[in-house]
Design a protein around this nucleic acid. Structure first.
Lengths: 207, 207
DNA sequence: GTCTATACTCTGATAGAC
DNA sequence: GTCTATCAGAGTATAGAC
């Protein structure tokens, strides 16, 4: 049952705004502590609302988390969806790398929310991984295979090529504190990463 | 004060064994749920001990976690320590990649324990990151720089080269469920990764 | 729609018998 | 050394006044 009930009413503007405020605060807390480590108290304080008021807008802690994850999935897959089979192979892949790195830079909390969930076995997201995500990856992997067969990029296992893009871009968001601790002050990790990853994938993809 | 007190006594064999049992159970729970998400009940059940008995061997939940992390750090840095400035540059780096991938394959829970901690801002590990880890990385980065200057490997930012090795190898442990969901059954992620990463780094490092 | 008060459960940690 | 019993606090969620 995908239907949400017959008496479902459109939300008022103030309801929309409060829901957004709650989701924003929840993203902050969930991304830092994971699902079980996060508390409604922290979210309520971040949203400037009382705890019972939170639960007026969402039926439970889990409902907030699920809402965040499903909203996230679309934005997360958009860069891969945009990979165009008609474009120039190397430039298409490099564009994908750039867009994915921009997501890490501009939405690090979303990246960490996702990482937390997968790290914990993806209990609330397994369906999406085995369904939408797998379908999309298989579809795009087929494009990479065709490009390789045509000799337009190097012959590499397409799924692992995609994994390598995920690993290398998300690492900068998920392990941010480690990277900054190792680099020390005076570095812009993302700016340096952009050039490095461009070089890396150009060398890797060259036939 | 690093000293643990004047009355410190060597642990008996049974104490050693029980501590190990507790740490093993704690690794399982902490690596899956993070520090705050883990409970002493879960650890006690996994260890086959009562909760108060747990706290006879360790003064607190945090003490167990800290013990795990500090034990882990040594094993985690060993492969990088082994990078030999006198060896063949490309083979030394590829050996490092292989050893790091083996750690992910053979100790995925340790990898996830570490990932959880860093993801949550490394509150119990910042000193180690800014101290031992940074020193070691800086030292090995200097070796990479010398190899690049001698034209024996490609000219790449050494810190980011090391980050890329961490990202690509740890990804297979930390995002294990996602990788298996996307690949589907009938795959051995680590076996496939070994060949892929070998190819990737050979192409990347070629001068 | 929002709050105070509170029910009820879980959690980390301690006391004290054996 | 290990257990039962238990505490104090935090946790999610609900009741009900306004």
């Amino acid at each position: 049952m995908e239907d949400e009930g017959p008496a479902e009413r459109p939300l008022t503007r103030i309801q929309q705004k409060n829901r957004q405020t709650i989701l924003e605060a929840a993203l902050e807390v969930f991304s830092q502590h994971g699902f079980r480590g996060a508390t409604l108290d922290q979210i309520a304080e971040g949203a400037g609302l009382s705890k019972p008021n939170l639960l007026y807008y969402f039926p439970s802690k889990e409902a907030i988390h699920v809402e965040l994850l499903s909203t996230l999935m679309d934005a997360w897959l958009a860069p891969l969806r945009a990979l165009d089979p008609a474009g120039d192979p190397v430039e298409e892949i490099l564009d994908y790398v750039r867009r994915k790195l921009e997501l890490s830079r501009d939405y690090p909390r979303e990246s960490r929310l996702f990482a937390n969930e997968v790290l914990q076995g993806a209990p609330r997201m397994m369906d999406a991984l085995e369904g939408d995500l797998k379908s999309l990856v298989d579809e795009k992997a087929a494009i990479l295979t065709r490009w390789a067969e045509a000799g337009r990029i190097a012959d590499l296992p397409p799924h692992h090529l995609i994994f390598s893009i995920w690993a290398l871009t998300q690492h900068y968001a998920d392990f941010d504190v480690q990277i900054r601790a190792v680099l020390g002050p005076g570095h812009d990790p993302y700016e340096e990463a952009e050039g490095f990853l461009d070089t890396l994938f150009r060398k890797l993809l060259a036939p």
